[in-house]
Nucleic acid binder design. Structure first.
Length: 222
DNA sequence: GCGACAG
DNA sequence: ATCTTGTCGC
């Protein structure tokens, strides 16, 4: 698929932060799409053997949740892991993988936060803006924000709050299982994001999109 | 100064 | 992320 926006990746931490403030203004926080036939899952892992990053993108047919296309690529590391600047480490290989994808997904589910980020521009926002595609941020753990534990039943949620602003939802996808952190990536509302995450997580804590992408990377790492 | 900190 | 022992809650 096509990348509609580009910028340099070989930059300093200070420049990256400035770029985040600038790109954050492009994030659309409301629903801006119609039908969903294909959803994309993404995952990246570090290979210490080759000192490189392995990125996987998988496209699922939305009713069967079965993969219809996938790409796995390897890329060099060009940025350290810094909380808040995660996308500058993981997006180069992810974008590279998406460029080889033929089926344009109607929705992307990221393994990382959206606007639940210090500068309201997590990895999910960054990817969504670069590809101009509806994107959901979905984290296993919290980056910022405060919350009360949601009820133990699947579908329960509580707001994730930073500076008295709702930046996401802490959502229970399975009964009595640790909740996940959902936030807006791009071109989708928080409510619609949670609706989709629940639909994509009928049986496990994490949505099928990230589970399948995760499995794809781990298989490749051998 | 000290703790927190997506993967 | 990945590794790994002791601790805590049900």
């Amino acid at each position: 698929m096509e990348q509609i926006l580009n910028h340099p990746w070989e930059i300093s931490e200070k420049e990256a932060i400035v770029l985040q403030y600038s790109l954050a203004e492009k994030v659309i926080k409301q629903d801006e799409f119609t039908e969903v036939n294909y959803v994309a899952g993404v995952d990246v892992a570090y290979s210490k053997r080759s000192d490189s990053l392995i990125a996987a993108v998988v496209i699922l047919e939305v009713n069967s949740l079965k993969p219809v296309e996938s790409v796995v690529i390897e890329d060099k590391v060009r940025f350290p892991y810094v909380p808040g600047l995660f996308s500058f480490r993981e997006l180069p290989p992810i974008v590279k993988a998406f460029k080889r994808i033929k089926i344009k997904p109607d929705l992307i589910v990221c393994d990382g936060q959206g606007i639940a980020h210090p500068r309201r521009f997590g990895l999910a926002c960054h990817l969504g803006v670069l590809l101009d595609t509806p994107t959901i941020g979905c984290g296993k753990t919290r980056l910022i924000g405060t919350f009360v534990e949601p009820e133990s039943q699947r579908g329960s949620y509580s707001p994730l709050i930073d500076n008295s602003e709702v930046i996401g939802k802490v959502l229970r996808t399975q009964n009595n299982v640790k909740p996940i952190f959902v936030s807006i990536g791009h071109r989708i509302s928080l409510e619609t994001s949670c609706k989709w995450i629940l639909e994509l997580s009928p049986k496990y804590r994490l949505p099928e999109t990230t589970r399948q992408a995760d499995h794809l990377v781990k298989t490749t790492l051998t």
